[in-house]
Design a protein around this nucleic acid. Structure first.
Lengths: 203, 203
DNA sequence: TCTTTTCCATACCGATTGGTATCTTTTGTC
DNA sequence: GACAAAAGATACCAATCGGTATGGAAAAGA
């Protein structure tokens, strides 16, 4: 029972990194910080990662698998009407805002702001995983548009990214104010906007 | 003519800091970096600022005075209809997106993400100046609401912050993608939304 | 002009940083 | 149990970090 599951330390390092980077940012999070939080030594760290940047990149991957699990299992995902899924996504994120600020913010949005000029591969990794997350939303928006707003002048992709932008921007103000109030109100605006974009009357 | 204007070095340090922090983030921007970019030595730096954090705080102040000058002189400011001023604000920010990514992004939004847990005074400074900028927008939104949507269920303040959130979130995606395309589309969505919130027909 | 204060440059320092070298321990495999 | 490979611990290092000490030049006040 005390057998060491393989890569247990690596997972602990990645988890600690995700948590710390979201709190302090990428540059301010040191390798020693991560090792201490994970409860392992630097020997282990540099066994699993060739340097700090590689950890950062792998952390973005770990972030996507983690969030994918959360959103994939969310109840809104099983709604039949794509319009309901889009609105359900916003609602789901609104409920997440009840958590601590440090818990509902996005690792990728936080990191990419810091590193987009200095760490090209990290920026690309953040962009890729943000795009992957958005891609699933695009599918629902696309389907909802076909049903409820087929002639709208905007693309499903642009609307999905718009939704993501509202979220990311809301996180910034939640951090600035140490409160999710503004963010919750913003998601309210967003939801009303989406409801007018996809008018139910036609149904 | 060669007389030393007072605080010329201090201004150069603040300007260099604003530029570098927007590119590399706060933690990754070193005091030496700033001095080199400003063309002065550390002796001058620590004469004007007692430490790096004080520079950061003063940089947020300098940022507000700079942006206030830009937005205060913008043509949309002199429009008579508050609705036009709100829409003009969004248009104005859209035109700014034609600049380089490093030029249109926001120092405060960038900094606060990094420091909100680790540097309380810096977070407070960012929050204050973001609030000051938003306050002017709130006035116009408030006036527009009175004229065009007096019975709307949302507050002028929440809508102004919503607009700010869209902007901040758009900046994140602009950085992630090294392109303003998504941001431009998002501002398009935002403007259409505002136009429906403040219907012109009533006029 | 003399003096005081502001401003800025040089040199330096202790602490921390990411990273390495080396060695021991654990784990899977035969 | 033997053995190779993976995993992790310890000690260490060069470079860089924010910050200090100090001295001199420029500006301002008298």
């Amino acid at each position: 029972m005390a057998s060491r599951p393989q890569n247990k330390s690596k997972v602990k390092l990645l988890d600690a990194a995700m948590q710390l980077i979201r709190q302090k940012g990428y540059a301010a999070t040191t390798v020693d910080d991560i090792c201490a939080a994970a409860g392992v030594t630097k020997g282990s760290f540099f066994h699993h990662f060739k340097n700090k940047d590689e950890l950062g990149i792998e952390a973005t991957g770990q972030w996507e698998t983690m969030t994918e699990a959360v959103f994939g299992a969310a109840p809104y995902r099983s709604l039949l009407d794509p319009r309901d899924r889009v609105l359900g996504y916003v609602d789901f994120r609104a409920t997440m805002l009840e958590w601590d600020v440090q818990t509902f913010t996005c690792l990728l949005g936080t990191m990419v702001q810091e590193v987009y000029t200095t760490h090209p591969e990290l920026r690309a990794a953040c962009n890729e995983h943000m795009s992957n997350h958005t891609a699933k939303l695009i599918d629902d928006v696309e389907a909802a548009k076909r049903l409820y707003a087929p002639d709208a002048p905007w693309s499903a992709q642009s609307l999905a990214y718009y939704i993501q932008s509202v979220l990311q921007g809301s996180f910034i103000f939640a951090k600035a104010k140490l409160s999710a109030e503004v963010a919750i109100d913003s998601l309210g605006h967003l939801k009303r906007h989406l409801e007018t974009l996809f008018p139910k009357t036609q149904n």
